[in-house]
């Protein structure tokens, strides 16, 4: 049960669920959370691949993990900027509807 393929299946499922959340939901907060979900799915895949190759080369495992670490950093940055925008949008229009973002172009 604990195998590379099953890790990848879980990762693929989480990713697809994230895609659904991003495309189907209109709440900006949920959209942002779905994005985090997708990033985590990718992280899982990266680490799993790294672990799978570690039998031959330890550096491969580390490369996957470092990649995942960078993704976490990027996610943190994205969340910080994204959420401050959400706050501003809320202050301006009292809305967290994705569709209302189009009002930003005047």
């Amino acid at each position: 049960m604990f195998s590379l393929t099953s890790c990848l299946y879980i990762s693929a499922f989480l990713f697809s669920t994230g895609v659904y959340g991003v495309l189907g939901r209109r709440n900006i907060l949920v959209v942002l959370m779905s994005l985090e979900l997708m990033l985590n799915a990718v992280n899982l895949a990266l680490v799993a691949f790294g672990r799978a190759y570690a039998a031959q080369d330890l550096a491969a495992a580390h490369t996957g993990q470092i990649f995942a670490l960078m993704v976490i950093a990027v996610a943190a940055a994205e969340a910080a900027v994204g959420l401050s925008i959400v706050l501003l949008v809320w202050r301006r229009w009292q809305s967290i509807d994705v569709r209302d973002l189009c009002r930003m172009h005047g």
Binding site: F2, S3, L4, T5, L8, R51, A52, Y53, A54, A55, Q56, D57, L58, A61
Partner: peptide, 11 residues
Amino acid sequence: LKEFDSFPGMA
């Protein structure tokens, strides 16, 4: 994928 499927021991 099958070759590494079961996470062989690490180096």
